[in-house]
Amino acid sequence: HEITLHINGRRVKLRFRDEKAAEILKEAAKKGLDEEELKKLAEELWR
């Protein structure tokens, strides 16, 4: 699955395995994680 989040006016595509991962990524984006941090988090969730 993929999700596209808008971060600092940019579109960031993240891959994720399940809905739980999608929710975690959305929450992290709301908390203000930047693009690099979100990509790292997405990679961690993928494993």
Rank of each mutant, 00 (worst) to 15 (best):
L33F: 13
W46Q: 03
R10I: 12
I24N: 04
A29Q: 07
E23V: 11
R11S: 15
H1I: 12
L5D: 00
G32H: 05
N8R: 06
E35H: 09
L45V: 03
E37W: 09
K20D: 10
I7M: 05
E37N: 12
I24D: 04
K20H: 12
I7E: 01
L38R: 00
E43D: 13
E36H: 14
L38C: 04
E44D: 14
V12Q: 02
L45G: 01
E19R: 09
G32L: 07
E27K: 09
L5K: 00
A22S: 08
K40P: 01
F16D: 01
R10N: 08
F16Q: 02
T4A: 06
R15Q: 08
G9M: 01
V12K: 01
L38H: 00
R11Y: 14
D34P: 14
E19T: 10
L41H: 01
L5V: 12
K30S: 13
G9R: 01
E19W: 10
L14C: 03
E27H: 09
L33Q: 07
D34A: 11
R47P: 05
E44H: 09
A22C: 13
L41P: 00
W46I: 04
A42M: 05
R47H: 15
A42R: 01
R11D: 15
L5E: 00
E37Q: 13
A22L: 14
H6P: 06
A29F: 11
K20G: 14
L25I: 11
L38T: 02
E35I: 15
N8T: 04
A42F: 04
D34C: 09
A21R: 02
T4E: 15
L5I: 14
L25A: 03
I7D: 01
K20S: 14
E19F: 09
H6I: 15
E36P: 10
A21C: 06
H6N: 14
K30N: 13
E19A: 14
E36V: 13
L38A: 02
L5C: 05
F16E: 01
E23G: 11
R11T: 15
I24S: 06
R11V: 15
E2M: 08
K26S: 09
K31G: 11
E37Y: 10
H1G: 15
K26W: 10
L33T: 07
F16H: 08
L5Q: 00
L45N: 02
E35V: 13
K13L: 05
L45R: 01
A42V: 04
A42W: 04
T4S: 08
K30D: 12
E44W: 10
F16N: 03
E27S: 12
E27I: 09
L33A: 13
I7Y: 02
L45C: 02
E27V: 09
R47L: 15
E44Y: 12
G32F: 06
H1C: 09
E43T: 05
H6C: 14
R11E: 15
V12N: 00
T4G: 03
W46E: 04
G32I: 05
K26D: 04
E37S: 15
E37I: 07
H6Y: 08
E27M: 09
E27W: 05
I7R: 02
G32E: 04
L33N: 06
L41R: 02
E23L: 11
E37C: 05
W46G: 02
A22F: 10
L33I: 11
E44P: 00
R15I: 08
R17W: 14
N8W: 01
E27R: 08
E19G: 09
R17H: 10
K20I: 10
L33V: 13
H6T: 13
E35G: 09
A28G: 09
E36F: 11
I24C: 07
L45F: 04
H6D: 14
K39I: 13
L45K: 01
L25P: 00
D18E: 07
I3G: 02
K26R: 14
L14M: 05
A28Y: 08
L14P: 00
K40H: 12
K40E: 11
G9V: 01
E36A: 10
H6E: 14
K13S: 10
